[in-house]
Each structure stands twice: as structure tokens, then as C-alpha cells.
Amino acid sequence: MKRYIIFLFIAVLGWTLAQTFRAIPFGADRRGNLDQPDRVAAFYLKESPETLQTANSITAIVVNFRGFDTLGEVTVLFLAATGLASILYRKEEDDETEERITLISSSLVRTGAKILFPLILLLGIYVFIHGHLTPGGGFQGGAIIATGFLLMLITYKRFDTNHNLMVWLESLAGLAFVATGLYGLFTYGSFLQNTHSVGTLNDLISGGLIPLIYIFIGIKVGTELTNILDILLKIKPGKQS
């Protein structure tokens, strides 16, 4: 009985969604007037190259126009990582060494990982430094850095991230984000306000505070995701608490 109610519910939901999206034509122009913006999309597309001199308008939205939301999202990420750490917390037993992997990787994998690791880190750093010029930014760069650390963590038994350093880097990056916001508040009158000298379009140093904030976000996201993976990989399989 319950099964049929659920099927009915899913069918009704699917029908409603289909009817809704028949009213929203795919590919139609919904940006509004680009010369005199009457909608947010047009406003952002107009202001991003003109006022902010930021080539990537998605970066301009995430860091500048909706910067406060991004601060909130980074906080959600931080809370999720904290919750995960506290849920999986267990008392340290000193007599046993931490066993992350049970099978030893072949020497081919180990050598390949050693060669690839600095290149992946370099790619991640490149992606978040050029977040305002090319596709990419702090969130993507941080995720790429976390995949680099993941490769090392599952390949080497002895590779260990310095937990204290990670926590410090993460906290400092978060504090620096807030401090940049407060700088805008005290200098220009509103939280996360960008500077007035924003440089020229498509320069590496352009967009005012946008590259700086995205670098902080990149460091924070990268260390946060690495911490999540590190905690999850350290659980001992088969051990019951």
C-alpha cells in the first residue's frame, strides 16, 4: 500500500515538473535589457566588465555581488567538516599505528603518484589564482588540490598530512576572508566592498579584492576537503565501537 502511494507521489511530482518546465522554453533569452539592466543577469553581465574589470562574470557574482552568501557557504562547509569530525571521533589508542590502506600499492603507482602530486597541486593553485580570468576559481582549485592529496593518501602508507598545519591554514584563510570584508566595511562603508582601483580587464592583477578573496577561499576549501578525506580514511574497518 505504502509503495503505491509513493509511486503515485513520484508520478504527480514528475508530471508537475514536466508541466512547469514546458512553460519555461529552453534556450530563450531571459536576461533582460543589457543596456539598461532591468534584471539581475543583465546587471551582472553589464557591471562585471565595466565596473569591476573582472573577465569571468561568474567569479564576479560569487565573490563580489554575492560575496556575503559565499561567506555563508564557506561556513556551511566548515560546519559540515566539524560535524563529520565530531561524529567519527574516537579516543586515540597509542599502541596501534594508523592503518589507512591494507594493500601496498605497486611501485608503478607509487612512482606515478610521486610525479603527479606536485603537478596536481600546481594545477590547483593555477586554477584559483586565475579564477577571475579563466574558468575556475577557489572552489574548483581547492577541490583539485584535495584530489592531489587523496592520490598520495591512498597510495602511500606513511604519507600523512600535518593535521595542525591544515587546521591553522584553514582558520587563517577563513579569518582573512572576514578581515577583507571588514576592511571594506571600515574603508568604503559596506561589508566586502571592493576597492575603487580595480585595474584593467584581463590583467592578472585586476578586479580589486576578487583574486585575493578567491585565493583565501581556495586555501580554505582545499584544506577542508583534505581534512574530510583524511578523517574518513583513518577509520579502522571492522572495528566496532
Binding site: 569571468n56 561568474i58 574558468p135 577541490a143 584535495a146 584530489t147 587523496l150 576537503l225
Partner: peptide
């Protein structure tokens, strides 16, 4: 949406 594609590639596939 190249930005979203990069994010999905790094997070969805690997992590």
C-alpha cells in the same frame, strides 16, 4: 558552463 564542469569533474568524479 565551464566553471560548473570543472567543479563537477573534480568533486563528483574523484571525491
Amino acid at each position: 558552463a565551464p566553471d560548473v564542469a570543472i567543479t563537477e569533474a573534480a568533486i563528483g568524479i574523484a571525491l
